[in-house]
Design a binder for these strands. Structure first.
Length: 422
RNA sequence: GUGGGCGUAGCUCAGCUGGUGGCAGCACCGGGUUGUGGCCUCGGCGGUCGUGGGUUCAAAUCCCAUCGCUCACCCCA
């Protein structure tokens, strides 16, 4: 019986973990400049929270959640709901009128896995709660762009406004009217959508649907005065920040809670999965979840798997190298009993020191030293023990010098430290 | 949930129309260098050919089933 990882769940092995760490560190570095603070929330929440936040009728809630039915609990399919729950539960709005938060971690959705889509996937999730000004929207996008820029990734930004509860219903009626008159040009799915979720027809990939939709009424033309003003201001801010973007009036969102600004960072280099970060404003959501009335918010999620895939195939040529500072090649019992405590002392001093306890041939140990990319090797054999003098080899320059074995392990370590930290 | 492709060594893969599993590459171990890495060279370790059934004198190869992986649809980060 051989066990293997569950379908859609992936191991991230050391070589790849290096890339993941770089992504996280880069994001954290940028977030700090924008005043974001980290929160860590559970990955398990009440099923009702997600149903309420994401929307009962969405695909995510309807068929993609990992739910423990008997316990009424669900593994989070996205991060915003849980984060807002924590915000509300702990009354964070009292501490500070505007909260800028981020969290990093796994999400779970029971979909069929494919390139760039796993059942356990990871997101870097950002939320700015308590501010409705358009400058906030633009700043959030500028921040995401900065993360991509500093990772050396080429991405495109698309934005749209999907209105608010004031203006969207009117648009919806207009759109349904239009689509109903062009039913024969729509695919089977979209015909169904006309009654269930007409906005979704706007971003259908089907050819026929696309041409029908080209002439459909535009949400942007149907925005109410406030939404229109907001959207215009967002664009002005984006221009002021020097961000390149395109308005995509066909972009809609899969989760019900979005209002006004929505945006996506996309790439064409990931097969079918083009969105690597996406989000938008959700001005009614916090109140809907039992939080303070009229509390606005906006946020986005970055798909870490997808970004890591991009890092693999873009620019990212030079690998981060993890080098050992020193490898001690010990030959024989006596040498080992001298080498082991020495390595221990070096590690206490903060050095990455390695040792091979197997007492293999010097050649084999040198090979091992090379594999861990040791900068120095201390050769400690029987001869050296007798002479009280080991050999210290610089692996890059191939220079070798004598290292007197006088004193305790701690004393030797101090002296070695001086020699190898140059 | 639907459709396509693929399962041969730890990894990447040859193996055509059935006839004993590959001097295959990478990795790993060892020799050449009786105590000095990378490069080279020689050798070695390593496989229930995903699993079960069928056809056949003979199946990695053909047929059926099943499991797994993968890509795409749907949807989404």
């Amino acid at each position: 019986m051989k066990f293997q990882a569950v379908n859609g769940f992936k191991d991230i092995l050391p070589d790849e973990a290096v890339r993941w760490r770089r992504l996280e560190e880069q994001a954290r570095a940028v977030f700090r400049r924008f005043g974001l603070r980290e929160v860590r929330v559970p990955i398990l929440e009440s099923t009702g929270l997600f149903a309420r936040a994401i929307g009962e009728a969405t695909d995510v809630v309807e068929k993609e959640m990992y739910t423990f039915a008997d316990k009424g609990l669900t593994l989070r399919p996205e991060a915003t709901a849980g984060l807002l729950r924590a915000y509300i539960e702990h009354g964070l709005h009292v501490q500070q009128p505007v909260q800028r938060l981020f969290t990093i971690g796994p999400m779970f959705r029971h979909e069929r896995p494919q390139k760039g889509r796993q059942r356990q996937f990871h997101q870097i999730d950002v939320e700015i709660i308590g501010a409705s000004e358009p400058g906030i929207d633009a700043e959030l996008m500028a921040m995401a762009q900065m993360v991509f820029d500093e990772l050396g990734l080429q991405v495109s930004l698309e934005i749209n406004s999907i209105g608010c509860p004031q203006c969207r219903p009117d648009f919806r009626v207009k759109l349904v009217d239009y689509l109903s008159s062009r039913m024969d040009g729509l695919c089977e799915d979209c015909r169904r959508r006309v009654s269930t979720n007409p906005l979704r027809a706007l971003d259908c990939k089907n050819r026929g649907c696309r041409s029908v939709v080209q002439d459909a009424p535009s949400i942007i033309d149907s925005l109410c005065r406030d939404c229109d003003t907001h959207f215009t201001a967002v664009r002005q801010h984006l221009d002021a920040f020097g961000l390149r973007y395109a308005v995509n009036r066909f972009m809609v969102r899969g989760l019900d809670y979005y209002t006004r600004t929505t945006f996506e960072f996309t790439t064409d280099q990931l097969g079918a999965q083009s969105a690597i970060a996406a989000g938008g404003r959700y001005d009614g959501l916090i109140e809907q979840l039992g939080g303070p009335a009229k509390m606005p918010g906006i946020g986005f999620g970055m798909g870490m798997e997808r970004i890591v895939l991009l890092m693999e195939q873009q620019a990212d040529t030079e690998k981060a190298i993890e080098r050992a500072d020193l490898f001690v090649a010990a030959l024989g019992e006596q040498a080992l009993s001298c080498a082991a405590p020495l390595v221990h002392e070096l590690r206490k001093l903060g050095f990455a020191a390695a040792i091979d306890y197997s007492s293999r041939s010097l050649k084999a140990q040198m090979k091992q030293a090379d594999r861990v990319k040791a900068r120095f090797v201390l050769i400690l054999g029987e001869e050296e023990i007798v002479r009280h003098e080991a050999a210290l080899r610089n692996m890059d320059s191939q220079e070798q010098s004598a290292f007197p074995l006088a004193g305790t392990a701690a004393v030797l370590a101090e002296r070695l430290a001086g020699l190898i930290s140059l």
